[in-house]
Computed example of a mutant assay.
Amino acid sequence: MATDGPPLAVLVSACAMTAIVGLRYLATSGLFAWITSRVRPGHYTGLHGQIRKEIGWSLASAAIYGIPAGVVAWGWQEHGWTRIYTDVHTYPLWWLPASVLAYLLLHDAWFYWTHRWMHEPRVFRIAHAVHHASRPPTAWAAMSFHPIEALTGAVVIPALVLLVPIHVGALGIVLTIMTVMGITNHMGWEMFPRTLVHSRLGRWLITASHHQRHHESYRCNYGLYFRHWDHLCGTDTGLSEAFSSR
């Protein structure tokens, strides 16, 4: 009977994480979709069928994200597998913001190169075409992935917490940034002020104006949070002209 305990606990953790990811998606994408309806009434008119598909693919992705997250969460609680810590004094205080930046930079690098790979013709047809079926993308499209693509994204944070120390609060900040930027970059309009988007800082940050260009032209603007990989590799083609007058 004792051998049945851990597998059951892992299953429960995976199911709980799947539910959390799914509910987080519905709540946050729903919030930004509601904001869109208030700020830009009619912006998603005629896209109801597309949105239903986005929600369906996203909820499937929630399970793919939730399973490895649940396994790692169980390993952290039961066996201390991860480098997550709860005492802020375990590492120097400067590591709190530095760890957030490290996670974002590492996640961004993984995303850039896997995203470029997803645009290889054969891989695109098999997997990434699901995401690009959102034309134009909406607030519901942030997790609208084929299972293959979802898997490439689902392994990042679980792998990082096994390798790179991070305070549980800092990890929460990373997950919040990941969620908010994933959604706002797909809303189909720019919520950040032009003074930021067109500033020197904006040249290095990805917002909807930059990512919309990717959905228009496909073979450019591959980054997630930052534009340095696009700049270094010559794949940055600037901001969407459709947003220039907004």
Rank of each mutant, 00 (worst) to 15 (best):
M187G: 01
I183Q: 02
A129R: 15
L163C: 10
G153S: 06
L163G: 08
T152D: 03
M178G: 02
R125K: 14
L171E: 02
P158C: 13
G169P: 00
A150M: 04
H146V: 11
T179R: 15
G188L: 02
T138L: 11
A127C: 13
L160G: 06
I173V: 15
V130H: 07
G188Y: 08
V180T: 11
V161F: 07
M187Y: 06
L160V: 04
P137Q: 10
I166H: 09
F145R: 15
G182I: 00
T138S: 14
I126N: 00
A129L: 14
H186N: 07
T179D: 14
W140D: 02
P158Y: 12
H132A: 12
A133N: 09
V155K: 07
I148K: 08
F145H: 15
H146E: 00
W140V: 01
V130Q: 04
A127F: 13
A127T: 09
G188C: 02
A141H: 09
H167Y: 09
I166C: 12
S144N: 10
I173C: 10
M178L: 11
T138F: 12
G182P: 10
V164A: 00
H146I: 05
P165V: 08
A129S: 15
L171M: 13
T138M: 14
T176K: 00
E190I: 12
I126D: 00
G172D: 09
A142H: 10
P136Q: 09
A133Y: 00
L162A: 12
V161L: 13
T179Q: 15
A139W: 05
G169N: 04
A154R: 01
G172E: 08
T184F: 11
A150Q: 11
P136R: 03
H131P: 08
A154F: 02
A150T: 07
V161E: 04
